[in-house]
Nucleic acid binder design. Sequence first.
DNA 1: TTGGAATGTCAACAAGACTGACATAAGCTG
DNA 2: CAGCTTATGTCAGTCTTGTTGACATTCCAA
Lengths: 170, 170
Amino acid sequence: MSDARPAQSFGGESLLFLTDEQLRQGIEAMFFAYRGFTADPDRILAEMAYGRAHHRAIHFINRAPGTTVNNLLAILGVTKQSLNRVLRTLIADGLVESRVGTQDKRERHLFLTPEGAALESKLSDAQRVRMRSAYKEAGPEAVAGFRQVLEAMMDREMRRTYANLRDSAT
Amino acid sequence: MSDARPAQSFGGESLLFLTDEQLRQGIEAMFFAYRGFTADPDRILAEMAYGRAHHRAIHFINRAPGTTVNNLLAILGVTKQSLNRVLRTLIADGLVESRVGTQDKRERHLFLTPEGAALESKLSDAQRVRMRSAYKEAGPEAVAGFRQVLEAMMDREMRRTYANLRDSAT
DNA sequence: TTGGAATGTCAACAAGACTGACATAAGCTG
DNA sequence: CAGCTTATGTCAGTCTTGTTGACATTCCAA
């Protein structure tokens, strides 16, 4: 497992990119990049009484308006109790609306209020600025590779969720 | 900021990759991929009484043996109180050794004990397995792009830290 | 109709981040 | 040497966000 030799022969191309050192650099790049990735929205959230969990909820409610709590749970990968605390404050603060399902009254369908949508925009814009700048700096081919590796890093189930969201784009 | 039009003209190539939708997909890919990225070591850590914070400390002490507390603080980007809690348990459990500096006796130099190194291997191996598989699946050119975009996503200071670690590779 | 499954809520707890205050030891400077 | 600064460690308290357990409501199927 911890061999330090280059990887051997896959499909004939490039034999020299799978050393442990190369992999470690990728691991560290993920660590530092994720810090940058969350830094800008975190700054905005810190000003209000919110955290990263609120951002995630707002993001995916905006992405799939009318989604149920259970569906959001599957996307976020946390317990319903954890999500509920976040949703409760967002609803109390008037950023999210929770409507009892018409067909199944056990379900709650979630929507952003205009105030919620405004915060979503603010957070997304901040995050997109950095993303856009990184994409510009790296160039379109790098972006394609970036997306490929990220997708390959996901679990099977996450990959499904990600693809569903992607394909449901308006 | 929230325009939905394609980006305009950069260096003549590829005009159609900077829409908000494209950026949002990148953002979601980062979110899901990071979950996958941490999933395997997290599972191992959960069995012991450790968390992700311990993993990060162990990783970078292994990467830069003899590093001082202050230096580790800068790399990890947390407060000394937060790091200290983690280091205290790692030292108490005999995974990390803290040696008083010979030149500057205020400094503590940190090293992994054999037990610490064993855990580091176990965690790194688990993380590398996924990384290696993602790299293989995506291919070498994708990996190059992946690394470029990640680096472009970092803050200036993180980029320096990252480059220093990378260049100090044995 | 009744018992189980699904959905959501409330309460309590733990990890890990944070700030603030303070102690100690060592280096540095005038 | 005296006094300031630096490096580290610690105590206390708070916040976010994850967890489990218990429970209420609603739906569905035997």
